[in-house]
C-alpha cells in the first residue's frame, strides 16, 4: 500500500470558493492557470480582500468571478466594464478588477472597453485571450487569427483580428502588458503591479483552448500549447504596441508595453468640480479633493 502523504493546503484555497470546485474549465485550459497567478498576486500585494471586487462578463473567463472568494459580480455579456465603472465611481475606496474573455471584452463589450480606457476609470482589466468563443462551442472571435479554423470560419478565418495591446494603448490605457499562461510568474507580477497602481490598467493573457481552438487547428493539446508559448514567446518590454499583433503561428511578443501616469477620471472630476464650485462642491466622503 502506498503511504498517504500529508500535504499542506494549497495557498490559493483561501481565495477560492472551494465549495464550487471542481470548476467548469476543460483540462489544459489556461483560465485556471491565470486565476492561480491572480491569487498569488493577491497574496503578494497584501491587499485587503474585503475591499476588492471582481467583475466578469459572460463566457468561460466570465466564470472567474464566481470562483473567487471576493465580492464578485457575474454580469451580462460584454458589460462587466460599465458595471465596474458604476461600482468604482460610487465606491472609490474599492479596488475593482474586471476579469473576462476576449469575445466579451472586445466584441460585444468593445465600446465599453475603449470608453473606460479613454476616461481612465481606475479599473484593473484582465483579459484571458483564448482566440475563440469557447463557452458557445468555438466560434470566431475578433481575436481569431487569420486562417484559423472555428465553427463559424470552417474554411479558415479571413477577418483581421484586433491587436489588443495596440487598441488598449490607443484608447488611453495607462498600463498595458501581455503574458501567456506559460509565464505564470511574470503574469502574477504584472497582476500585482496593477493591483497596486492607479488608472485604467490592462493585461492580456494569451491562453490555450485545447478543446476548441488547438484541437480544430491541429495544434495539439494544452501541453503542446505550453511548448509553443515557451518557444515562440519573445519578451520585449516597451515594445511598440503597433508591432505586437498576433498571427496564427508566429512569435508572441510578451512583456510590459506601456506604463504611464495620467490623472484618473475621479481625480479629474474632483479637480474640475472643486475648481468651479469651490466649497460648494460636496466631494464624496473619503475622497481627496485637490
Amino acid at each position: 500500500m502506498i503511504p498517504v502523504e500529508e500535504v499542506a493546503t494549497n495557498p490559493v484555497e483561501p481565495f477560492l470558493r472551494m465549495e464550487r470546485i471542481p470548476h467548469i474549465w476543460c483540462p489544459g485550459c489556461g483560465i485556471g492557470t491565470s486565476v492561480n497567478s491572480f491569487t498569488r498576486a493577491l497574496i503578494e500585494s497584501e491587499a485587503d480582500l474585503n475591499k476588492i471586487a471582481i467583475v466578469s462578463g459572460i463566457g468561460c473567463t466570465g466564470r472567474v468571478a464566481g470562483y473567487m472568494k471576493l465580492d464578485s459580480f457575474h454580469t451580462t455579456h460584454g458589460r462587466a466594464i460599465p458595471f465596474a465603472t458604476g461600482l468604482k465611481l460610487a465606491r472609490p475606496d474599492l479596488t475593482v478588477v474586471v476579469y473576462s474573455g476576449d469575445g466579451d471584452l472586445f466584441a460585444i463589450g468593445g465600446n465599453h472597453f475603449i470608453h473606460a480606457a479613454r476616461r481612465n476609470i481606475d479599473l484593473k482589466v484582465i483579459c484571458v485571450n483564448n482566440l475563440i468563443y469557447a463557452m458557445t462551442g468555438g466560434q470566431a472571435a475578433p481575436t481569431t487569427p487569420v486562417t484559423a479554423v472555428s465553427t463559424t470560419s470552417p474554411y479558415g478565418c479571413y477577418e483581421p483580428p484586433f491587436n489588443l495591446p495596440y487598441l488598449a494603448a490607443a484608447a488611453g490605457a495607462t498600463y498595458v502588458a501581455r503574458w501567456t499562461t506559460f509565464h505564470v510568474r511574470q503574469l502574477a507580477r504584472a497582476m500585482k503591479e496593477i493591483l497596486r497602481r492607479k488608472g485604467f490598467s490592462f493585461i492580456e493573457v494569451i491562453s490555450p483552448c485545447p478543446t476548441l481552438y488547438q484541437r480544430r487547428n491541429k495544434m495539439g493539446d494544452g501541453l503542446d500549447a505550453m511548448k509553443f508559448y515557451k518557444e515562440h514567446s519573445k519578451v520585449k518590454n516597451g515594445a511598440p504596441t503597433a508591432e505586437v499583433g498576433l498571427d496564427i503561428a508566429g512569435d508572441i511578443i510578451v512583456g510590459k508595453f506601456i506604463e504611464i501616469e495620467r490623472p484618473s477620471y475621479a481625480d479629474v472630476m474632483r479637480h474640475q468640480l472643486h475648481a468651479r464650485l469651490g466649497d460648494r462642491y460636496a466631494c464624496e466622503e473619503g475622497a481627496v479633493c485637490q
Binding site: V55, D71, F73, T75, T76, G78, R79, P82, F83, A84, T85, G86, L87, K88, L89, A90, R91, L94, N111, H112, H115
Partner: peptide, 19 residues
C-alpha cells in the same frame, strides 16, 4: 456619469447600487 450608450448606463447604475 454620462456613459457611451444606454446599455452601459443601465448597468453602471447597478454597479453603483451594489456599492
Amino acid at each position: 456619469v454620462q456613459m457611451e450608450d444606454e446599455l452601459a448606463a443601465s448597468i453602471a447604475i447597478q454597479g453603483a447600487v451594489w456599492g
